[in-house]
């Protein structure tokens, strides 16, 4: 047995986290009355801490919180609406491409101004919704980081 006593930290490790304690220290404490008593004093302290009364609130927490919350959640409706608009706009775009496919095939060869306007407006429309969706997910992620 090592004559020199271990550090206080090692005795605490032996007391509360023995699986991470080195064999040398375990052996020492098991055979040393002084260290064993220090370890026991930590156990007594731990038992006393466990038996400490828990703090109690003087008000009804659930009632107070539920009074402040609006339980008709608007988020899911907003989600459905956004998805519906995106799907609708994509549908309209593909339908338009299908209907005006002949015009599209000539769009870059012939100089048709109205077709150019159409392409630009559809592109802006789609970009707008993609941008909105990106902003929403960005806001959500930032909020997650904030808590």
């Amino acid at each position: 047995m090592k004559i020199e006593h271990p550090y206080d930290k090692d005795i605490q490790e032996y007391t509360f986290d023995a699986s991470n304690c080195s064999n040398e220290i375990i052996e020492h404490i098991n055979s040393c009355e002084v260290c064993k008593k220090v370890s026991e004093s930590y156990l007594v302290l731990s038992r006393e801490l466990k038996s400490q009364p828990e703090p109690v609130l003087e008000f009804d927490l659930s009632e107070l919180i539920l009074d402040q919350l609006n339980f008709s959640k608007k988020e899911p409706i907003y989600n459905y609406l956004l998805s519906f608009i995106i799907i609708m706009s994509l549908g309209i775009t593909f339908f338009a491409i299908y209907v005006f496919r002949d015009t599209f095939s000539n769009i870059f060869s012939a100089n048709i101004t109205i077709s150019n306007y159409f392409i630009v407006s559809v592109t802006i429309f789609i970009s707008l919704f993609l941008g909105l969706d990106m902003y929403r997910s960005y806001y959500k992620k930032i909020n997650m980081l904030k808590y």
Binding site: P6, Y7, D8, V34, C35, V38
Partner: peptide
């Protein structure tokens, strides 16, 4: 700084 357990510490703490 983690002082080693001595007889003094033992009497004191225990």
């Amino acid at each position: 700084v983690w002082e080693r357990i001595s007889i003094h510490t033992f009497c004191y703490s225990d």
